[in-house]
Amino acid sequence: MITTKNLTLKFKQATILQNISVTLHKGHITAFIGKSGAGKTSLLKCLANLYHGFSGDALYQGKPLNSLTTQQRVHAVGFVFQQFNLFPHLTVVQNCVQPQVTALGTSQQQAQKKASEVLACLGLSACEHVYPNQLSGGQQQRVAIARALVLEPQVLLFDEPSSALDPQATQALAQVLKDLSKTGITIGLCSHDVVLIKELLDCVYLIDGGTVVDQHYMSDGALCTTSLIGQFLGKLEE
């Protein structure tokens, strides 16, 4: 679905990512784990086409991500930010309606209907007309997911999705991610949450110093505790 080949990202003199080659398979949940500053968020931002100055390839269904039109791009990749980045001057439903009208040219009526459906699926019907700052962290995150989903992306990227959530909200998020994955949406996330990682993943990449140092497909069997990923998760659990 999304592939990077030898992706290298530099800011001035500093190398943020070096020769990263990863694949997010259709309908799978892929995680990028690693220490803070390892380059996980930068990689996700490259996949969302938020960073343009990288060398190497970032491909969506074989096409370079930066060659997609705006409409193709929003249908290809959605992004849920760590801080959610909801538009604070718009209500929850307006946050979900405006992107459809603005980016896709959907009629106001259709956009409203779609937004209400998606918000209902995520249990947010009662919050439609409130502002983001009146919601809890977990609710804000679900609004951010809804805002991304109304554009019907094939790939949904999450930056540290459980960092602002309590254990209960994290469980609820895990369920949402599982349900999304079942509908065929490809999910990529970076996280430090061991529970979330162990419960959800189809594939894990361990990133350190801007390069992939280990990877593991869950379909290949249980994770070996002596592997680099196993050791990293073990340290997180401690």
């Binding site: 969302a48 959605g78 538009f87 603005t102 980016a103």
Partner: peptide
């Protein structure tokens, strides 16, 4: 206005003019 607002608008497919008019200037 936090830089994340520009990023969010870009990811959601807003052009730069629409980002300014609908997201940044109202805030």
């Amino acid at each position: 206005v936090p830089g994340g607002q520009w990023d969010a608008a870009y990811v959601l497919g807003y052009s730069q003019i629409k980002t300014l008019a609908l997201v940044i200037l109202p805030q």
